[in-house]
């Protein structure tokens, strides 16, 4: 008798499972057909870093202070300051980002005190060669200009700048 109930219960559990998969079969697929369709990403989505420029003058906001370079745990950023021009403004002469090293942690963007560096939300980061993964100042500025709609970084909590500025001593 026990065996019979066990068999019936077992058979019933299989029928229940079949019922569940059948109900699921009636639902539409949930697939997002990337790359034909694209996910909608929140504005704070990180992606790769890029340089922002002033929307009015079009000039880069970067002052070549080097905090990002010091904050980066992976030494992905290499920046050289330009010699001071007649307007006494500090500018970077070169700014290279090695995406082959970058782990998209966003510490550089948090550390930037001038809102000149941001995580620009770009997520297609593959390249055919390693050289493809190294981005120059101009390329980063171009990516930053494409990021216009989110040019204003989200408000940062108090104390953020102070802490994250403290990179390698």
């Amino acid at each position: 008798m026990e065996t019979v109930t066990a068999i019936l219960k077992g058979g019933w559990s299989i029928l229940v499972g079949l019922g569940i998969t059948f109900r699921r079969m009636l639902r539409p697929p949930v697939t997002l057909r990337y790359p034909e369709e694209r996910p909608e990403l929140p504005p704070i989505y990180r992606g790769m870093p890029a340089l922002l420029s002033d929307p009015e003058t079009g000039e880069l906001r970067c002052t070549a202070c080097g905090v990002c370079q010091r904050t980066c745990p992976l030494e992905a950023i290499h920046m050289e300051p330009a010699p001071l021009g007649p307007d006494k403004k500090k500018r970077p002469a070169s700014f290279t980002l090695d995406m082959g090293r970058c782990m998209v942690c966003g510490l550089c963007a948090e550390a930037c005190a001038f809102n000149a560096l941001t995580m620009a939300g770009r997520y297609e980061l593959a390249g055919y060669t390693r050289q493809d993964l190294i981005f120059s100042l101009e390329e980063l500025a171009e990516i930053g200009r494409g990021y216009r709609e989110n040019n204003q970084a989200p408000p940062r909590p108090a104390g953020a700048r102070a802490q994250d500025g403290g990179g390698v001593q």
Binding site: T21, R24, M25, R27, P29, V30, T31
Partner: peptide, 11 residues
């Protein structure tokens, strides 16, 4: 299998 798993299968 794709229908059961709410996928598309080959398209």
């Amino acid at each position: 299998s794709a229908r059961i798993q709410n996928r598309m299968g080959p398209i």
